[in-house]
Amino acid sequence: MSSEGCIVGNKSSEKAVECFCNHLSTFASGFLVAPNTIDFAELEVDPTKNPVIFITLSIIAVLYTLLAVWARHADRKDLTRVGCIPMDSNDPLDKYLYEVRVTTGSRSGAGTKSKVCLVVSGEWDETCVRPLNGYGQEILKRGQTDSFLMAVPRPMGPLQYVRVWHDNSGPSEHGSWFLNYIIIVDLQTKIKYPFVANRWLAVEEEDGEIDKVFPVSGDSDLLNFSHLFTERTKKDLADDHLWISIFTRPVCSRFTRLQRVSCCLLLLMLSMITSAMFYEKDETSLTGLQWVLYSQCSAE
């Protein structure tokens, strides 16, 4: 882009541009909004003369401080949930390891405090009953993914199904459980076996069953629109949305809650200063302060 050979005519205004060029190449013109100059030395610093600014900034500072303290505490708590929880039923002599990732749904009342057990079956072998225990940690909460380390004496071959049930012993509001899906990873071969459930294990929901068998999911299950839409929406809100993810951040994310809170504060401050730069008190004046007329010509 070049303005060589072109000048702006005297009849140019905020609605039209008069451009004189000594060549016939392609050219264009347009308008740019000029930011206002903010002179901080001239701003009112007396709270009695301009209390709105001080009240607004004070509220923002207090909210940020409270959120930062909470976020730091939550980040430290999240560190205790990173990694796999060894299953109580593991035999110290068993050396073949599987990682069992259990994801609870995000809908209301999805979490449970009932005792949950499972049995994993493969082509060559199957496990005994494996209870899921958190060793003092809160597991199977709403929208949470819990990882458990399962040890077996030998490989079970390609996994075929997993049987999951609970005893409905939790409190009334935490007795039921909405199981989203289970992913079992063979830690030796790194092969993942997904088991999509997306259903209630509850006596008062759906078919009333709390004991279900889920076969390994194929491509048709994983590429199902409902499953893809739900998982994508959940990830976009829980991890990618800057404001919402402060409270729903996955524990495996490297972007901490405190960092997210600080980024929200920075975004808010930048938005405020940007609004001040492009705000014009005299709306009838479009020359000088608000608009800058420019002409750019490009020779091909």
Rank of each mutant, 00 (worst) to 15 (best):
149 L>Q: 13
144 Q>E: 10
184 I>Y: 02
227 H>W: 14
225 F>L: 03
227 H>Y: 15
208 G>Y: 07
157 G>M: 08
145 T>Y: 08
194 P>S: 10
140 L>S: 06
188 Q>Y: 08
167 D>Y: 09
223 L>I: 06
210 I>D: 00
169 S>G: 15
172 S>D: 09
155 P>F: 04
182 I>Q: 00
138 E>Q: 14
230 T>V: 06
172 S>M: 10
210 I>W: 02
186 D>S: 05
217 S>E: 08
215 P>V: 03
216 V>I: 14
137 Q>R: 15
196 V>W: 00
179 L>Q: 03
196 V>S: 07
211 D>M: 10
196 V>H: 09
202 A>L: 07
150 M>R: 01
227 H>A: 04
191 I>A: 08
211 D>E: 10
209 E>N: 13
136 G>P: 05
208 G>L: 13
170 G>I: 00
168 N>C: 10
171 P>G: 07
212 K>P: 06
178 F>V: 00
219 D>Q: 14
225 F>D: 13
209 E>F: 11
215 P>S: 11
231 E>C: 03
146 D>C: 13
147 S>V: 10
224 N>C: 14
199 R>M: 13
229 F>C: 09
148 F>L: 08
170 G>A: 01
161 Y>G: 06
193 Y>D: 03
227 H>S: 04
173 E>M: 13
162 V>T: 09
145 T>A: 12
169 S>D: 13
190 K>W: 08
136 G>L: 11
140 L>R: 04
177 W>V: 08
140 L>V: 08
227 H>V: 14
153 P>M: 04
206 E>M: 06
151 A>Y: 05
187 L>T: 15
214 F>A: 06
156 M>S: 03
221 D>T: 12
208 G>F: 04
231 E>I: 03
154 R>E: 12
140 L>W: 01
201 L>N: 02
160 Q>R: 15
166 H>G: 00
189 T>G: 05
202 A>T: 02
216 V>C: 13
218 G>C: 05
154 R>W: 09
230 T>H: 14
160 Q>T: 13
162 V>G: 03
158 P>L: 03
213 V>Q: 11
224 N>V: 06
172 S>P: 02
191 I>D: 05
220 S>F: 06
179 L>T: 06
137 Q>S: 14
182 I>K: 00
213 V>C: 12
165 W>F: 15
228 L>E: 07
226 S>C: 09
232 R>E: 09
149 L>P: 02
175 G>W: 01
149 L>F: 07
179 L>N: 00
185 V>S: 11
138 E>P: 05
226 S>D: 12
177 W>H: 03
157 G>F: 09
185 V>W: 01
166 H>Y: 07
196 V>Q: 12
177 W>R: 04
186 D>R: 02
229 F>H: 14
216 V>W: 04
158 P>D: 13
149 L>W: 02
200 W>A: 05
205 E>K: 15
162 V>W: 00
215 P>W: 07
203 V>R: 14
196 V>D: 09
227 H>L: 10
140 L>E: 01
137 Q>V: 00
160 Q>D: 08
158 P>V: 06
209 E>I: 12
191 I>V: 15
153 P>C: 03
222 L>S: 07
172 S>Q: 10
146 D>I: 04
206 E>L: 04
208 G>I: 08
173 E>D: 14
180 N>E: 15
204 E>C: 09
200 W>E: 01
170 G>K: 00
136 G>E: 03
138 E>I: 07
141 K>A: 11
